[in-house]
């Protein structure tokens, strides 16, 4: 791709790549707006949810996904954890000159496939080509619209003493996959990202545990960061149990070599849910019945203790502070 060189023809070519891939009746001409029927939306609930996120990832293609899939899942999951049914996405792509049309096609197809899986339509978008060095190959911004069903009220402040803490599966896969894909890490077998749209899993969770307090997708900063955010927002203490925290052996081993704590690794197909204790078992069953929740686990609970503090009961029986990191994981040992 050459920036500017192709003029309008080039611009059209690029737009066509995406329009062709996203093909759906509502898809607007890319420089126009999508129009949605209010009555149509109202059948799903009584509140609109709107979210936006920009996606930057190195490398663009990694085991288990690529930037396109990530851009759809990220926004779909942000809507879903808020209790919304995700319906429509927009997609804006910034492309560094030199990226091939074939590669663009690959990413566009990936986005389309993921959108289909997530039950959302990509209804509007934009593309820009910038000078070499002005961006790193490709940035994607997606915006999502969803609808929250009547009666669904989620918020961290609703967490209560004794509530259970659930995750829908093995933690840290995405972060480990990305690190493994970067440079020559000489891994035996690649670890795949868990990148997946979670609207279906979340719907069955809410169905099974209607009093679910709160959900969050533990992306950047991992479960440790999300738990700290929840503990802080709800002014409660949270304790998780190392022995039951689900981790893939490969991720555990990889983290041991790298010296990283998997609790801080990013996930792209996981939720942390806080559920009242009397609905915890149902919630767990509902998750485990879903293909994206087979290894779901109750990893901890809201406990009495200093508000805002997250601890982990270690396999040695001690309790370790799991803190919000200011920066990167840096050794604190002297």
């Amino acid at each position: 791709l050459a920036h500017g060189g192709g003029g309008k023809a080039m611009k059209d070519l690029i737009d066509d790549v995406f329009v062709a891939a996203f093909d759906n009746p509502m898809l607007a001409p890319l420089d126009d707006s999508a129009r949605m029927d209010l009555l149509d939306l109202a059948q799903y609930g009584d509140r609109l949810a709107l979210t936006t996120d920009s996606f930057v990832v190195d490398p663009l293609v990694f085991p288990g996904g690529d930037i396109g899939k990530l851009a759809v899942c990220g926004t779909v999951n942000d809507l879903a954890v808020g209790g919304a049914l995700p319906l429509y996405l927009s997609c804006a792509v910034i492309i560094e000159e030199g990226v091939s049309i074939d590669f663009l096609r690959q990413i566009a197809r990936s986005m389309a496939a993921t959108a289909q899986e997530a039950g959302v339509k990509i209804v509007t978008g934009d593309t820009k080509v910038v000078n070499k060095g002005a961006c790193d190959q490709m940035f994607i911004t997606t915006t999502g619209v969803g609808v929250v069903a009547a009666g669904v009220e989620l918020g961290a402040h609703r967490a209560r003493l004794g509530d259970a803490l659930l995750v829908n599966g093995l933690l840290g896969d995405h972060g480990a996959a990305i690190l493994g894909a970067r440079g020559d890490m000489a891994l035996q077998s690649p670890i795949e990202s868990d990148c997946a749209p979670l609207q279906g899993l979340i719907a069955s969770l809410l169905n099974a545990a209607p009093n679910t307090r709160f959900m969050r997708d533990p992306t950047r900063g991992g479960v440790a960061t999300v738990l700290n955010e929840i503990a802080e927002a709800a002014q409660v203490a949270i304790e998780i149990d190392e022995a039951v925290t689900p981790l893939r052996d490969e991720v555990r081993g990889f983290c041991e070599i790298l010296g990283l704590d998997p609790l801080y690794l990013a996930n792209e197909g996981k939720i942390v849910a806080i559920v009242p204790s009397d609905e915890a078992e149902q919630a767990l069953e509902a998750m485990r019945a879903h293909p994206l929740g087979r290894q779901a686990a109750i990893i901890g609970s809201v406990v009495a203790g200093e508000p805002g503090r997250v601890t982990m009961r270690t396999i040695f029986g001690g309790r370790r502070i799991v803190d919000m990191l200011v920066g990167e994981q840096l050794p604190r040992i002297c």
């Binding site: 440079g183 070599i257 790298l258």
Partner: peptide
Amino acid sequence: KPLATIDGMIARGLNSP
């Protein structure tokens, strides 16, 4: 020991302060 991985970590500056 997984020296090749350690090489990669040092080369990329990955958690190798």
